[in-house]
């Protein structure tokens, strides 16, 4: 489903990713762990197509499409979703307007029928309940005045409403209390199915207690230096990144 080969990417002329390889099969959950500055967030932004994150070499194939040739919104319509580490506050844009525009823009791009107002409301009501997003949050401008936890729950609500084939969670656990962490994990687990995969980027093993990964990768200095099953995360927690990275080299 996702095939990243020899990916080199730079930001502002500095090379951050230096020949990264990653293969994900449909339905799998992969975790990417690594020290600060390893290139974890860069990988997330490169996959999502952010301006200023330039692919200089290598390829990214997603469900048979060359991802590098698609715009940010086209990637989203193709099924890529990035849950932000720091979701933005967007004053003046009502949350419901934003959600409906996003859902219908993706449907339109895929040649599907747009969702009418009642079905959309039903969808959001159902998902809000699941992720404890209160009505008053939905009535506010997007993320404006939300707490850290509320913002992350809004990210998961968006993810659930958009049902992406690949959800990328960029340190979604940072700054979360244990209850919100559980809700975020439930969101990912609920999405988990043979058609829906997730790439979980995290510093800590803690999130992986709730989202159990099929594969764990260690990213250091722009490359994946080690991959393994979920026990690798525990190993990392115990010995630290340095030991693993040195060991791998």
């Amino acid at each position: 489903m996702l095939e990243v080969r020899n990916l080199h990417a730079s930001v502002g002329g500095t090379e951050i990713l230096k020949g990264l390889n990653l293969t994900m099969k449909p339905g799998e959950v992969h975790a990417i762990m690594g020290p600060n500055g390893a290139g974890k967030s860069t990988l997330a932004y490169v996959l999502a197509g952010r301006d200023g994150y330039d692919v200089t070499e290598g390829s990214i194939s997603f469900c048979g499409q060359d991802l590098c040739k698609l715009n940010v919104d086209e990637r989203a319509a193709a099924g890529v979703f990035l849950a932000f580490q720091y979701p933005l506050e967007i004053p003046g844009v009502p949350t419901m307007t934003f959600l409906r525009t996003a859902v219908n823009a993706q449907r339109k791009a895929r040649g599907e029928k747009e969702m009418d107002a009642p079905s959309f409301l039903r969808l959001i009501r159902e998902k809000s309940k699941m992720f404890k997003v209160e009505d008053k949050m939905l009535k506010r401008p997007l993320n404006v005045g939300f707490s850290g936890g509320e913002k992350k729950r809004m990210e998961v609500l968006q993810m659930a409403a958009l049902e992406p084939k690949l959800a990328i969670l960029d340190e979604t656990d940072s700054g979360l209390d244990i209850d919100s962490l559980r809700i975020v994990a439930e969101g990912v687990n609920a999405l988990r199915s043979p058609d829906h995969s997730a790439l979980v980027i995290t510093h800590y093993q803690r999130l992986l207690d709730y989202i159990v990964p099929d594969v764990v990768h260690v990213l250091a200095d722009g490359r994946i230096v080690k991959s393994g099953d979920k026990t690798l995360a525990l190993e990392l927690e115990e010995h630290g990144y340095e030991a693993i990275a040195t060991d791998a080299a």
């Binding site: 715009n71 989203a76 979703f81 844009v93 996003a102 968006q158």
Partner: peptide
């Protein structure tokens, strides 16, 4: 970028903003 990453085309995202 945030809005486009949710599938909203650039022109529509700009208009909303």
């Amino acid at each position: 970028f945030y809005m486009m990453s949710r599938g909203i085309p650039q022109i529509e995202a700009r208009a909303l903003l």
